[in-house]
Each structure stands twice: as structure tokens, then as C-alpha cells.
């Protein structure tokens, strides 16, 4: 599926929730379920510092695609991180670099991508795109 199709699928999935609690419970569940990153990659250089919660991000390049793993110390952020990975991981550097991320806004979690929260998710998205650009330019070892 393309990045756009993956986002639309998430938006459709979230449309079933009738109140905020169901939606958050789902995100929290996502945050709890996934082993998002190997412990060895939860180190300082992979840490994206937000003001409130931390996010670790690790890229791997294989067969022309980038595969991300990540983690956060806050569970709601972690749930959103897992959605972000679902959408962006396994695509080519160009697809990631060019992607327009709109699903966070559409599912009503817009504040997580705003500067005011400074919770790491926005920084994470920027970092994913930076990796994509770097792999594209060949400045990171593939």
C-alpha cells in the first residue's frame, strides 16, 4: 500500500470510534503492544528530545527501502509513533521524503504535531524525513 492508502486506512479505522475514550484506548493499546525498537538502539544518538516525552528512532536501509523502529517513554506518544511507523516504514527514501502526513490531523490528534506540545512526535517526523533525504542523497551508508 502507498503512504496515502495507509493513512486513509487509519482514518477509516478511527472513524468507527464514537467517543474520545475509545479512540485513546485504542492508541494506548497500540502503544503497549508493540515492541517497537531493540534495546540496543535506545541510546543517546537515537533519542529525539521533545520537551515532555522522549522518542527513540532507528532507521535501517534494505533493498531500496527504509525500515524504522522507534519507542517513546509516554504511552500515547508511543501509540502514535507506532501509527507513524506503520505509515512510513518500508517505503523508498523518495516516497518518505515526499510524503504529506495528514492522518494525525484527521484522527483528531492534531495537537501532537503542533509546536505547543513539543512532545517529540513532530521532531520524529522531521527526523524520519531527514533520514529519507540523507539515504536519497547517499550521505548515509546504505
Amino acid at each position: 500500500m502507498s503512504i496515502k492508502e495507509l493513512q486513509d486506512e487509519i482514518i477509516e479505522e478511527f472513524a468507527f470510534f464514537t467517543d474520545w475514550m475509545e479512540k485513546y484506548e485504542y492508541i494506548i493499546q497500540l502503544g503497549k503492544e508493540l515492541p517497537l525498537i531493540e534495546e540496543q538502539y535506545k541510546r543517546e544518538e537515537n533519542l529525539i528530545k521533545g520537551c515532555q516525552s522522549k522518542v527513540w528512532l532507528h532507521p535501517e536501509y534494505s533493498d531500496g527501502k527504509i525500515f524504522f523502529t522507534a519507542d517513546s517513554d509516554a504511552v500515547i506518544t508511543k501509540g502514535l509513533v507506532s501509527l507513524m511507523i506503520k505509515v512510513l516504514s518500508g517505503h523508498t527514501p523518495k516516497e518518505i521524503a515526499d510524503a504529506e502526513i495528514y492522518f494525525i490531523d484527521e484522527i483528531g490528534l492534531k495537537s501532537h504535531l503542533s509546536q505547543t506540545r513539543s512532545n517529540g512526535l513532530l521532531s520524529m517526523l522531521k527526523q524520519m524525513k531527514l533520514y529519507a533525504v540523507a539515504f536519497q542523497a547517499g550521505s548515509l551508508q546504505k
Binding site: Y24, I28, C51, Q52, D73, A74, T77, N119
Partner: peptide, 21 residues
């Protein structure tokens, strides 16, 4: 071991304004 940011967000959704961080 709840992260304060998570707690604050769930409070916010209930109309309760606290600060976290």
C-alpha cells in the same frame, strides 16, 4: 509509572487543565 504527559492528556480530554513536565 504513568508518564505525566499521558496523565495530563487524559485529564485534558475531561476538561481538567493541569500542567505536566
Amino acid at each position: 509509572d504513568l508518564h505525566p504527559f499521558d496523565t495530563g492528556e487524559i485529564l485534558d480530554k475531561q476538561g481538567i487543565a493541569v500542567r505536566t513536565g
